[in-house]
Design a protein around this nucleic acid. Structure first.
Length: 530
RNA sequence: GCCCCCAUGGUCUAGCGGCCUAGGACGCCACCCUUUCAAGGUGGAGAUCGCGGGUUCGAAUCCCGCUGGGGGUACCA
């Protein structure tokens, strides 16, 4: 490529960039090239769910090929930049267990990993393109650009820059400069011919060059646009497989043209499928759904469930298996099997996975540990270090409610009566349908006696005795047990009654029964029943 | 408008020319279990494989057109 080779390749050549014939038959040439992939979000807000899905697939791909996974921050838009976003991104990735080998925080051999710190590199590359006729300076004002666009729209012409500045003479450029106009740099797209792009999932697409736009590469503020920055960085960082969102497909030919202008060998490109809103209208947005990854962490979703669900939007292993851990995915994921069609986001299924992991996958102690912060925040428990009686109580409580818990943040609501008092309730809650208040009162008195005598440790014995009592009083089990449930918890929905009593303990159970009896005998219900 | 991508039950999908009278999962319905609610178990409804042409002995699977949906169309990424 000699004379057409860009400046960077003279200075830096990653081993993987040395003239190999990449990717025609084998996706990865195991013997010569090390896989290097990157996740390159822009810090403009919370990490989007679509973004993490791309990160997830990219990370898995790196790990299954023993490659490098790098994190690069594309902070070239100063207007939309949000400082807090960087932490949101790294926190999201860490939460899901996606670690990176090189990145802004840990550095690496091809840094810096913030694009804002690589400005001179982009400038140098832009200059090289300028000098070699692949780019030109454009002095058009945004007002003129708007006017051109409006006119094109009015005349129903294809939109795009009219290449007004493409053939400016040196004198004309100087004139603009003298007027104080700072130019942008635009790519000089070939006027004729076509550009062929190749996407791993979609195959080849041929674009007629005349339909392509002279995109801006360098903005007048001295920052590069994505088109220049990402191409330069992917090349310089030795990226072998470019994985990105589907919104880049339209500008794909521009990117190929940039690579060609520099004389660089193309990496493999993979455009992930779009994630749509649940109703199928438009891409997943804040409006319709929780598009922010961190929100799921805050709502008590498990990273395992999130990973599992996300892996299944746009990818499937076969027609049987549906549970995948990160390490399962490293073993079984195949990037070539990623779908090319958009998929709707499905909250119900994510929630189902979460519930399933909580109830069937996570070990009890693990689940307890993860629930602790929520219980603490609700003021139900204190530090509760492992081994403490407080921890033991929390563990016992979690064990009883985990089949009802769909997200961790429900833990306090589901377990509150184990820690403090039962919910406050009206006395009529103690009286099941088709049951007399007086009967309930009698039953509760008997229950109190029996609990005092038998205790709550032997669940079976207690249950046996209470069922006998129910028979004696002519009550069905439900009529007998519901008042006890209400007395103990203040609600009509709770875990199994006898396990609940055991965890609440004999003393507190008796207190609560006493409370219920008192409440019932003081109420008008008993008197009118008499 | 222009360029591009996509198309299997409501949703995510398996399927890569005969194994499909299309399989699984979520959701939905019913039943079972049962001291409530869940969880779990069993069963069920639900797809003319978007439509129309081809190719072939044979198409959900290959080709073309149409339609529909979506993406892009910024000195944002």
């Amino acid at each position: 490529m000699g004379a057409l080779t860009g400046p960077v390749s003279r200075r830096f050549r990653h081993p993987s960039q040395r003239g190999t014939d990449r990717g025609k038959k084998e996706l990865v040439n195991e013997t010569s090239n090390r896989v290097r992939v990157r996740f390159a979000p822009s810090p403009t807000g919370d990490l989007h769910v679509g973004g993490v899905r791309t990160a997830l697939f990219t990370w898995i791909f790196a790990r299954q090929h023993d490659g490098d996974f790098l994190l690069r921050i594309e902070d070239t838009d100063r207007r939309r930049f949000q400082e807090t976003s960087i932490e949101s991104i790294t926190e999201s990735l860490c939460w899901l267990g996606l670690d990176w080998d090189e990145g802004p925080d840990i550095g690496g051999p091809v840094g810096p990993y913030f694009q804002s710190e690589r400005l001179d590199i982009y400038r140098e590359h832009a200059n090289w393109l300028l000098e070699n006729g692949h780019a030109y300076e454009c002095f058009c004002s945004s007002e003129r650009l708007d006017a051109v666009r409006r006119e094109q729209q009015a005349n129903k012409q294809p939109p795009g820059y009219d290449r007004h500045c493409r053939n400016l003479t040196g004198e004309q450029r100087q004139e603009y400069r003298d007027q104080g106009v700072t130019p942008v740099v635009r790519l000089a797209v070939p006027l004729e011919g076509s550009t062929t792009v190749h996407d791993l999932l979609r195959g080849e697409t041929v674009y007629e060059n005349r339909t392509l736009e002279d995109a801006v590469l360098m903005k007048s503020d001295g920052f590069p646009t994505y088109h220049l920055a990402a191409m330069v960085d992917d090349f310089m960082m030795g990226i072998t497989h470019v994985t990105r969102g589907p919104e880049w497909i339209p500008s794909f030919p521009l990117h190929v043209l940039i690579y060609q202008a520099f004389g660089w060998e193309l990496p493999v490109f993979v455009h992930m499928p779009l994630i749509l809103n649940p109703d199928g209208k438009g891409k997943l947005s804040k409006r319709q759904g929780a598009a922010s990854t961190l929100m799921y962490k805050q709502d008590g979703y498990l990273p395992e469930a999130m990973v599992n669900y996300l892996a299944l939007v746009g990818w499937a292993y076969d027609d049987r298996e549906e549970f995948f851990s990160l390490s399962d995915l490293i073993e079984k994921f195949s990037i070539e099997k990623v779908s090319s069609s958009a998929a709707r986001y499905n909250f119900d299924k994510l929630l189902w996975f979460n519930q399933h992991y909580i109830n069937h996958t996570i070990e009890l102690d693990d689940l307890t540990r993860r629930s602790l912060p929520w219980l603490q925040e609700a003021g139900l428990i204190g530090d509760a270090p492992e081994g403490s009686s407080e921890y033991a109580l929390a563990r016992d409580a979690i064990a009883l409610i985990k089949d009802k818990m769909k997200v961790l943040k429900e833990a306090p609501e589901l377990t509150s009566f184990f820690f403090g008092e039962p919910d406050s309730y009206e006395s009529d809650l103690l009286i099941p349908k088709k049951t007399e208040a007086a009967t309930v009162l009698t039953a509760l008195d008997r229950v109190r006696e029996i609990v005092a005598e038998l205790g709550v440790e032997d669940e079976e014995a207690l249950e046996g005795r209470l069922r006998t009592v129910a028979d004696e009083l002519g009550l069905k089990a439900g009529q007998m047990f519901m008042p006890i449930r209400v007395a103990l918890t203040g609600r009509t929905v709770s875990p199994g009654l006898f396990e609940t009593m055991k965890v609440v303990g004999k003393e507190r159970s008796l207190e609560r029964l006493d409370q219920a009896i008192k409440k019932l005998s003081q109420s008008a219900l008993v008197e009118t029943a008499d």
